[in-house]
């Protein structure tokens, strides 16, 4: 049963309608923990994108080979393999950025979002749809992380990607870890409010 969405729609779905961080509220640990700079967001976003895409494609390729009763262990094995690969690669080729992220790259293996995506989508859909869906989810995660990172880095250290933009540090609080909770909470509330507003307008226009 193939999905009836086009490939482009799959991607935008991942970024907007079913954004992992803001809508599905999954994989929030890194969103709160290390979204202190845009660079971190990009790096971790890329890692998650890589893992999501490769896992989705792998599972989709092997969906007939996997016995239904052991599908969860198989998903776990696949995800763990790709996480190990990206972890080793990042550590070797981008050591400075990797050091910033600590163990969060390894923790990708425990992200509910990836397993859920495999369970709900990749094991039923053909390879190409799985690829685009994985891409969408990964990009959605990256976008979320970058947005939060942007807010925190700008307001916390007055810089973007390490380049001083404001010339002063507005509120050190924002790059302290606990601010992650506040920023995410406020942004979620804000998105909810926007949604309600547009929904009300739509209803009002009918």
């Amino acid at each position: 049963m193939a999905t009836d969405k086009s490939n482009f729609q799959l991607v935008t779905n991942g970024i907007l309608q079913e954004n992992p961080i803001f809508k599905l509220a999954l994989s929030m640990c890194p969103a709160v923990g290390i979204s202190t700079t845009v660079m971190n967001g990009l790096m971790l976003g890329t890692a998650v994108l890589f893992v999501q895409v490769f896992s989705s494609v792998t599972i989709s390729l092997l969906k007939n080979f996997i016995h239904p009763r052991i599908r969860i262990p198989t998903y776990t094995l696949t995800i763990a393999t790709w996480v190990t690969v990206i972890d080793l690669s990042l550590a070797a080729y981008f050591p400075a950025a990797y050091a910033q992220m600590g163990i969060f790259v390894k923790i990708i293996v425990a992200f509910a979002i990836i397993t859920m995506r495999l369970e709900m989508f990749a094991c039923k859909e053909p390879v190409s749809s799985s690829f685009w869906d994985g891409l969408g989810m990964g990009l959605g995660f990256m976008v979320g992380m970058v947005v939060i990172g942007l807010v925190r880095e700008l307001l916390g250290s007055g810089a973007i990607l390490g380049h001083d933009v404001l010339g002063f540090k507005p509120l050190l609080f924002f790059i302290l870890p606990s601010a992650g909770f506040f920023v995410v909470g406020l942004m979620m509330g804000f998105f909810n409010w926007i949604e309600k507003y547009y929904a009300a307008r739509k209803r009002g226009n009918r």
């Binding site: 092997l62 080979f65 996997i66 016995h67 052991i70 262990p73 198989t74 094995l77 696949t78 763990a80 393999t81 190990t84 690969v85 080793l88 690669s89 550590a91 070797a92 080729y93």
Partner: peptide, 23 residues
């Protein structure tokens, strides 16, 4: 099937390790 999957996974990880360790 599980054993085959494990073996494939192990090979992929092992190769990545060897390549990236040098770097």
């Amino acid at each position: 099937r599980l054993t085959v999957s494990c073996l494939i996974a192990g090979t992929i990880m092992g190769m990545t390790f060897i390549v990236t360790n040098k770097a």
